[in-house]
């Protein structure tokens, strides 16, 4: 393990002095944790590139898409737990009215004084039977919530959640129980395969290379920061994709284009500045040019279909930009 301490120290050194990871606490009770889009985060650039695939403005077409809504819930008693990252899990739930009604008649007055609670059990390495959890903690929720993000703070552990009532006398009544999930490790495993034993220093070097710490690789700062800072400060989660806010710079752009148009017999051959031009069936033509500064001579010549007659008209245009 010493070796890992070393790697960690190395990582520390690589983080620029004075660098602080902002742990901004938003004043409002933000139940969704997250950080500001961080260009150094793993996956940032992947996100930008993938987003570029979908880069279009939205046309106004709401009228074409009036749509039914999805149901609010599905009339079942259910709670589902999912892993968001090594520390956070997400849960959503629903309860039938029937279930609530029967609880109400069972609990009587206590029903109204009971608080709705999520009980989060650490069930790492055990077969959970409802009472043998390694530990648990409670989160009080309001009546309107139907989902929650939970900071377990424990990578590499298993969790299960009960949605239930906490009664005034301290009793906890489970209404529904979730599935069990396991958070991933946040660093390398401490389990080394005996058959494939590898000296720690060798692995540390490989590990460092993987994260871009080897001597040929100055990159990988994102990972170093990640390991160092932990991923998960609180704040409002927002899009990592919106392009960097443009520096405040007022701007204006002016350009000039010149339209040259005319008409002749449909059978005639027309050239503009010596180059042939296609006529529309009615003998008209239109050309459009980006117009540079200076004087432009634009001889327009038409030769009749039988090549016996010709006309040349030469507009002269002067652009001067100040």
């Amino acid at each position: 393990m010493k070796i890992f301490q070393k790697v960690k120290e190395k990582i520390k050194k690589l983080i620029p002095a004075g660098f602080t990871f902002k742990r901004k606490k938003k004043p409002q009770s933000a139940k969704i944790p997250g950080t500001r889009p961080d260009k150094e985060m793993p996956g940032f650039q992947e996100t930008v590139v993938a987003d570029a695939k979908f880069s279009h403005p939205e046309p106004a077409r709401s009228a074409r898409f009036i749509q039914e809504e999805l149901p609010y819930q599905y009339d079942q008693d259910k709670i589902v737990l999912q892993v968001r990252d090594p520390r956070w899990v997400h849960t959503y739930w629903e309860l039938r009215n029937l279930t609530l009604e029967s609880l109400k008649s069972r609990l009587g007055d206590d029903f109204h004084r009971a608080r709705k609670v999520l009980r989060v059990y650490d069930v790492t390495n055990i077969i959970f039977n409802g009472s043998n959890a390694n530990s648990f903690f409670d989160i009080q929720i309001n009546d309107f919530a139907n989902s929650w993000y939970i900071d377990t703070g424990k990578p590499g552990c298993s969790f299960c959640v009960d949605l239930g009532f906490m009664l005034p006398d301290g009793r906890f009544i489970t209404i529904v129980r979730s599935n069990v999930v396991q958070t991933p490790l946040e660093g390398p495993s401490w389990i080394t395969d005996e058959e494939w034993m590898i000296p720690d220093d060798l692995f540390a070097r490989l590990y460092g290379m993987g994260f871009g710490l080897g001597r040929s690789s100055p990159v990988g700062k994102a990972w170093q920061e990640r390991i160092k800072q932990g991923l998960f400060s609180s704040g409002i989660s927002s899009s990592p994709v919106r392009r960097a806010v443009k520096e405040r710079s007022f701007w204006m752009k002016v350009d000039c284009e010149l339209i040259v148009y005319g008409a002749t017999e449909p059978s005639a051959a027309v050239t503009v500045q010596g180059k042939p031009v296609n006529l529309r069936p009615d003998g008209t033509f239109t050309l459009r040019f980006w117009l540079p500064d200076g004087k432009q001579h634009i001889p327009v010549k038409a030769v009749s279909g039988d090549k016996l007659e010709e006309r040349t008209i030469t507009p002269i245009v002067n652009r001067e930009t100040k």
């Binding site: 793993p42 996956g43 940032f44 992947e46 999912q82 968001r84 090594p86 956070w88």
Partner: peptide
């Protein structure tokens, strides 16, 4: 390989 490396 998404933003932050997991499911967020």
């Amino acid at each position: 390989w998404g933003y932050k490396g997991y499911s967020e």
